[in-house]
Amino acid sequence: MISPPIRIHYFTDVLCVWAYLAQVRLDELIKHHASEIEISYHFMPIFGCTEHRIEDGWKDKGGYAGFGEHTHQVCKAYPYLALHQDVWKINAPKTSATSHLFIKAVQSLVGAGMINNEACADLQHRTLFEEFVWQVRLAFFQDAKDIGNMQVLKEIARTMQLPVAQIERAMDDGTALAALFRDIELRDEFRVEGSPTYILNEGRQKLYGNVGYRIIEANLHEILRQPKVEASWC
C-alpha cells in the first residue's frame, strides 16, 4: 500500500529576503522528495505595511535605503542570488498584501483545475504556480519592481500566459481574499512566528528562519521513518 504524501505547510512573505534565499532549499527538497511530499503554500503579511515596518521601524538606520543595505549584507553570503543594486531604494512596495492576494487568485485557479499545474522541466521542475511566485520574488529582488502594484503583477502573469481575466475575477468575487485570510488563520493556528517557516507533522515540527537544507531534510526523514502506529511516551 502506497502511503499518502507528507503535507508540508510553507509560510512566507514575498518581500522577505530570507524566503528569497531559501528558495534554492525548497527546490532541492522538492527535487529529491517530490513523490513523498506535498507543499501547501501560505502567505503572511510580514511586510503588510512597509511604511510602518521599514520607514518608521528603520528610521534611525536610514529607512528604506538602510533596509536596502541590510538586504545586500544578508545576500553577500549567497552569491547565487541576483539582487538589484537599488533594492528597497527605488520602487519600494507599500505592501506585500497585493502580491499575496494575486498569488492566492492564481492558486485558486489551480485548485479549480483551470490552470495546468504539472511540474515542468522548462521551469526547473517547478509547477506553473510555483514559478509564478518565484517570478514575483524576482521582479522585486532582481529587478527592483514595485510588486505592490497590481499592474506589475498583471504584466508578470501575461508574460507567463496566465489567464489574467480569470485571476481578476477570483479577486473581484472574494475567492482570493478568503483564501488569503485562511492563510492568516493557519498562521495563528500553527503559531507561525515569521518567514520562511516550514510546518511538518501537523504542527509538531516547526522550522523557522534561515534553516539549512540538511536540517529540513533530516526532519522530513524522521517523519518518513516513523511507524504508522506508535505508543505514546507519556
Rank of each mutant, 00 (worst) to 15 (best):
I2F: 00
R7T: 15
R7H: 02
H9S: 10
Y10H: 10
F11L: 03
C16P: 03
V17R: 01
W18K: 01
L21H: 02
E28R: 10
A34G: 00
A34M: 03
E36M: 06
I37G: 02
S40D: 13
Y41E: 13
M44G: 12
C49H: 10
G63D: 10
G66Q: 12
H70S: 04
T71F: 12
H72M: 05
C75F: 07
A77E: 15
P79K: 08
L81W: 07
L83F: 10
D86S: 14
T95V: 04
S96Y: 09
T98D: 04
S99F: 03
F102V: 02
A105T: 12
A105Y: 02
Q107N: 11
N116H: 05
N116C: 02
R126H: 10
E131M: 11
E131P: 00
F132G: 03
V133D: 01
V133M: 10
W134A: 13
Q135H: 03
A139L: 02
A139H: 04
F140R: 07
A144D: 10
K145C: 04
D146I: 09
N149R: 08
M150G: 00
Q151N: 12
K154N: 07
R158C: 07
I167N: 09
E168A: 12
R169I: 01
D172Y: 11
A178K: 08
A179Y: 08
F181Q: 15
R182D: 15
L186R: 13
D188E: 15
G194A: 12
Y198P: 05
I199C: 02
G203E: 07
R204A: 15
L207I: 01
L207K: 13
V211K: 14
Y213Q: 10
E217K: 15
I223R: 03
L224M: 15
R225L: 13
Q226D: 11
K228F: 00
